[in-house]
């Protein structure tokens, strides 16, 4: 009940943001929502299903580039382009997960790490220049006003992201509440027991990888139209690792946690940037330092992240 109230308040708060925020702040808000969608996908995979992906930036990139290419080269509207690109992500995730999944978490981590490191080079591949714009990247037109309402671009993008985020959160919540969710968690906690109960672990894991990549793809597509630009350098290992940081800090296996995670990975680098005034150019190092220390500290004291801290706080209050 309390959590439903919290979600309701969060949605009302988020939906009202364009009335009292503007310009750059609204853009940041949209970024938070986009990250939240990507983190949600990764959390389905890593938090709920126990599979480690260090390469979700690659699926984010496929979503972003896929949508951009469809919009720029084929002239499709974004509401067609993004779902199509995300479907491609689902297939890509399914296919990529297929070989790697059978061999324990570590091999999957290695394979996805390789994917994350190789992605920028693949995106800048010369022979695909005509599609991807090579190392220059692609400029994507920003979407027009939502539903023909008199809105600014930032407002339209923000509400679009919010609507998509709410829909995807609802889908994830439904998925996790039922049979599929129980199977995913069972595979994470005790694969052998899950298999002997009749759960097809390989199939569920691969599909979970596909869904997770789909979420990342939607986020990537929204990111492309929100930023209005895609380039290879923005989809490197750093992005993939930032996603991992996000779910670890927000809370593994928590839907609410991804919002904290998204806020964290959006605003920590931002504030660190402002510290260059005091520390000079090398303050670029600060977000990384905060990420690293927070990751280790979280694993040591709060393996369930910020969401877990809230949960145990709530339990304590209820007992008192």
């Amino acid at each position: 009940m309390a959590s439903r109230l919290a979600w309701g308040l969060a949605v009302v708060f988020a939906a009202s943001a364009p009335f009292w925020m503007s310009g750059y702040h609204l853009y940041q808000g949209a970024q938070v929502l986009i990250y939240a969608i990507a983190l949600l996908g990764l959390n389905l995979l890593t938090g709920y299903n126990g599979q480690l992906s260090l390469g979700h930036g690659a699926f984010f990139a496929i979503g972003g580039y896929g949508a951009s290419i469809l919009i720029v080269k084929l002239g499709l509207p974004y509401y067609v382009a993004i779902p199509l690109a995300s479907a491609v992500c689902f297939v890509a995730g399914f296919l990529f997960g297929f070989p790697a999944l059978r061999f324990g978490g570590l091999y999957l981590a290695l394979a996805t790490f390789a994917l994350a490191v190789a992605t920028p080079q693949l995106l800048a591949f010369k022979r695909l220049d005509f599609l991807t714009g090579g190392s220059e990247g692609l400029h994507v037109p920003k979407p027009g006003p939502l539903l023909g309402l008199p809105l600014s671009v930032d407002q339209s993008v923000y509400w679009l992201c919010l609507a998509v985020a709410i829909a995807l959160f609802a889908i994830a919540a439904n998925l996790l509440r039922g049979r599929v969710g129980r199977a995913l968690v069972a595979i994470r906690d005790h694969p052998i027991a899950a298999e002997s109960m009749g759960v097809d672990a390989a199939l569920y894991k691969t599909i979970c990888f596909g869904i997770s990549a789909f979420y990342a793809g939607v986020a990537g597509g929204l990111d492309a139209i929100a930023v209005g630009f895609v380039s290879p350098e923005s989809f490197g290992l750093a992005l993939s690792l930032a996603f991992l940081v996000g779910i670890v800090i927000g809370g593994l296996a928590s839907l609410g946690g991804v919002i904290f995670g998204a806020l964290f990975i959006e605003f920590v680098p931002n504030y660190a940037d402002q510290l260059t005034v005091y520390f000079g150019e090398n303050a670029k190092a600060l977000p990384g330092a905060v990420y690293g220390v927070m990751m280790i500290a979280m694993m040591a004291v709060a393996p369930m992240g910020i969401a877990g801290l809230f949960r145990s706080l709530a339990q304590r209050l209820r007992k008192a």
């Binding site: 890593t46 480690l52 978490g105 690792l241 991992l244 940081v245 600060l286 990384g288 694993m299 393996p303």
Partner: peptide
């Protein structure tokens, strides 16, 4: 394994940041 890998990646972040700083 998940926790250990996360700790290793955290370590990586820290060394990268230290070098940059």
């Amino acid at each position: 394994i998940l926790a250990s890998v996360i700790v290793f990646i955290g370590l990586g972040f820290i060394f990268n940041a230290l070098a940059g700083f």
